[in-house]
Every structure is written in structure tokens, then in C-alpha cells.
Simulated scan of single mutants.
Amino acid sequence: MTASAESARPRRTQKERREATVTKLVDATVAAIGEVGYQRTTVQEICGRAGLSVGAMFRQFDSRLDLIVRTAEVIVTRQTAAFTVVMEQLGAQENPLDTALRFLQAAQSDNVTHALREIYLAARSDDELRARIAPTVESYYDGVVAAVERTGVLSRYPQRLREPLFFMALHVFSGQAVVRGVYQRPELDEAVLELVGDMLRTYADAIDQ
């Protein structure tokens, strides 16, 4: 790039620079937690991945915990957006239930989901972390359940059963993703997916009778 082109490019505002730094830190935190786990995601690990100094991080966040909380918020926002897009397209699918289940299963193996799961596990024994992310997590699942409801993919089931059915599938696939890290059986994953779908359809048929 020439000097004239460089000078012609608008300079970023302080707010834009700050937002860019925060994004780098959050992205680095997501990658680190997903790859090396919550405990090994130190400030040094995060800053090294972000290409920033430790001082640069502490100019944006008072503590590692503050960055973790922000990271959880960003993950939830991104997950909600991706989930909503898929849910909005279900009506055009030949088999909406199968499409929804396949997306839910695949999403549990995404590195971003692994990072959020690691944060959940850490929150079990960290009262402050648990208290600070709880409102975000509650809002997240409320929004996801509402998105599922709008699709009508579970409309064959009574209202009182729809949320439990969603979480049943979510928990099955989440546990599957954890075990897959040490026990890889792709054919078993596919069999579980088909079984969950068959069980849901059989249950719906029984309710209709």
C-alpha cells in the first residue's frame, strides 16, 4: 500500500480501536478455552493468541474474570444468531425435525460450543462466575426455546412437553460431543441421531392416537 493510499484511509476512532481490541481478546479467549480448556486459558495465553500485551488487555478489562464473562456473552450472541438463521429456514426443509436435530448435534461439537461448555463447568465451582453469567445463560435458552417454538417443529407435542423435549435432545448431543473427544465412533453418533429422531416421531404418533 502506498503512503498516499494509507493517508487517504480514514483513521479509526478511539472507540473503534477499543472495540477491535476487545474483539481480538474475545476471539482469542474462545479459541484458547475451546482448545486448551478453561484452567489453562491464562491471561498470557489469551494475549499471546490475540497478539496483544497483557497491559493492553487490562486497559479493557479489570480482570480475567471480566473477560471470561464478556466472552460468554459474545458466544451466546453468536450462537443465538446462528441458531435463529437455521430455525427460520426449517419451513423450507423436506424433513424439518431431522434438519433441526442434525444442526443441534453438529453445533455441540463446534469449538465455540466447547468453549461455552468449559465456562459452564468452571461455573459449577466458581460462585462469582456462575452468578455473573447466569442472566446471560437464562436469556440465551429462553431465546432458543422461543425460536424453536416459532418454527412449529415440535407442534405435534403438547406445550408442556416442548421445552423438555428440546433440552433432552440438547443434553444427549452435548454429552455425545464430550465423550467424542476420547471415544470416536462416527457410526454410533449417526445411530444416536437416528434413534432420537425415531423416538420423537414415535412419541408424536402415540400422542396423535
Rank of each mutant, 00 (worst) to 15 (best):
residue 36 V to G: 06
residue 138 E to K: 05
residue 125 S to C: 13
residue 124 R to C: 11
residue 135 P to N: 09
residue 81 A to R: 03
residue 15 K to H: 15
residue 164 P to R: 00
residue 77 T to K: 02
residue 187 E to P: 01
residue 167 F to P: 03
residue 68 I to M: 14
residue 148 V to L: 12
residue 127 D to I: 09
residue 14 Q to C: 10
residue 172 V to N: 00
residue 170 L to Y: 06
residue 166 F to K: 00
residue 166 F to P: 00
residue 40 R to S: 06
residue 164 P to A: 09
residue 152 G to E: 10
residue 186 P to V: 05
residue 40 R to L: 05
residue 105 Q to V: 04
residue 159 Q to V: 06
residue 56 A to G: 11
residue 37 G to L: 14
residue 50 A to S: 10
residue 82 A to M: 04
residue 75 I to S: 00
residue 178 V to A: 10
residue 89 Q to T: 12
residue 60 Q to Y: 14
residue 134 A to F: 05
residue 206 A to T: 05
residue 177 A to D: 05
residue 130 R to G: 07
residue 54 V to M: 11
residue 1 M to Y: 12
residue 44 Q to L: 08
residue 51 G to S: 04
residue 133 I to W: 13
residue 166 F to D: 02
residue 147 A to T: 04
residue 46 I to Y: 02
residue 154 L to Y: 12
residue 141 Y to H: 10
residue 25 L to D: 02
residue 202 T to R: 14
residue 207 I to M: 11
residue 205 D to S: 09
residue 95 N to H: 11
residue 120 Y to P: 00
residue 41 T to H: 04
residue 67 L to R: 03
residue 90 L to G: 08
residue 116 L to R: 01
residue 116 L to P: 01
residue 95 N to E: 15
residue 172 V to M: 01
residue 15 K to W: 14
residue 140 Y to P: 03
residue 203 Y to F: 15
residue 196 V to D: 06
residue 86 V to I: 04
residue 60 Q to G: 05
residue 86 V to R: 00
